[in-house]
Design a protein around this nucleic acid. Structure first.
Lengths: 208, 208
DNA sequence: AATATAAATGAATGGCATTCATTTATTGGT
DNA sequence: ACCAATAAATGAATGCCATTCATTTATATT
């Protein structure tokens, strides 16, 4: 039959479908329909639906901003990377369970991201035996924070139970008084700056 | 008909099913079978499968250790809470997407956990307007780290792409040399201590 | 005892990812 | 230019899933 499909086209179609219908709308049938093809045809190019999610994930990894590593100071680079990483995946939280278990060998662009970040840490005088651990910790925070972005605004409204949790309710009300544009951004900034501060102290002096 | 079911029994049966067959084995049909009941009978007591997951989540929240708050020093209490929180949910990562979007009003035990933590922060001299943000940040880290626990050991093996990512490969090899029992624990400790250090500096002096 | 209510049943529905035998188009070799 | 081999697409079928609903049955209330 005619060569209609390839992994690139599948990835693009999946991203379009996700952005128009969300992850609930991403079914193998819908994906096939958007490509003008029978669902079973997809299986000549991907092994499973998880495989499609992996393609999408790797595409997104290439959109994460690592450009500051090796250019800007270490803390600035980490900050830019982490915010960008969170922003990209906060629109794609259903991928997070997939990424977390995904061997990097199957995701070349994701691997390229790790390479850039690792090099940035090393060149900034970060002790080599701690680099991966630091990246894993930052990534854990980023993934958790990506979920937080999707939480409803009133997630902390205790409702009828409010009087049973006075300290919590008071703290929630106190935060609301601050009237920040996005509480989720305040929490992310608070945590990220603590991590950058703590990890920054591990670096050796470097001449640059 | 005979009063066989209630939410407590459903929760217990769900937990048993999860521990024996995993989350893939937790289907409404399997749950009903383990209770000696037709699947449709469940819907007299829960609105949906997500409702079952919510019951499970709230049960687990009660297992998280908050006992150190108000007893031990703040940093010790946070450390105990965070490790325990991660350990409990690392066995239940499929719940994380549910929790992240879950209004606390529907989960009384989860709310009780937040109350204990909030009181602990307040009594330790933590500025009230930052308490919720700090908890949210710690929770994000905990959830992300819970996923990391489930990752395969060789997740960072770049395979045939290794020579294209030399810095990354070197850092991965360097970490492996350390021969820690669990790399995931090293990363969690590194991140958690940075967060505790950073947040601890926000506290006001308190007489106790 | 009669009635109302709550709970369990079993059959049916629609959606889902995936498989497979079959057909069709392209490619590479002679 | 033909033929064989291969890659790709088809459509029907499978099995699993959560959920719904009319019906039946047991308990609770008056």
């Amino acid at each position: 039959m005619a060569r209609i499909l390839d992994q690139n086209g599948i990835t693009t179609a999946a991203l379009e479908l996700i952005s128009s219908k969300g992850y609930d709308g991403l079914t193998m049938a819908a994906l096939a329909r958007s490509l003008g093809v029978a669902p079973s045809a997809l299986y000549n190019h991907v092994a499973s639906k998880d495989d499609v999610l992996l393609l999408v994930e790797d595409h997104l990894a290439a959109m994460v901003d690592v450009s500051a590593f090796g250019v800007e100071p270490w803390d600035v680079a980490v900050r830019r990377w982490a915010w960008s990483y969170r922003d990209v995946f906060s629109e794609h939280t259903p991928l997070i369970p997939v990424i977390a278990v995904l061997p990097v060998a199957n995701a070349p662009k994701t691997l390229a991201m790790y390479e850039a970040v690792t090099a940035g840490f090393r060149d900034a005088g970060f002790p080599e035996e701690k680099i991966i651990s630091a990246i894993v910790a930052l990534e854990a925070f980023v993934f958790g924070a990506a979920y937080d972005v999707t939480a409803p605004e009133d997630i902390f409204d205790a409702g009828s139970l409010a009087d049973q949790v006075p300290n919590f309710t008071a703290a929630v009300d106190r935060l609301a008084l601050e009237q920040h544009p996005r509480p989720t951004d305040v929490a992310f900034s608070l945590g990220l700056e603590a991590l950058i501060g703590g990890f920054g102290a591990l670096r050796q002096a470097v001449s640059d």
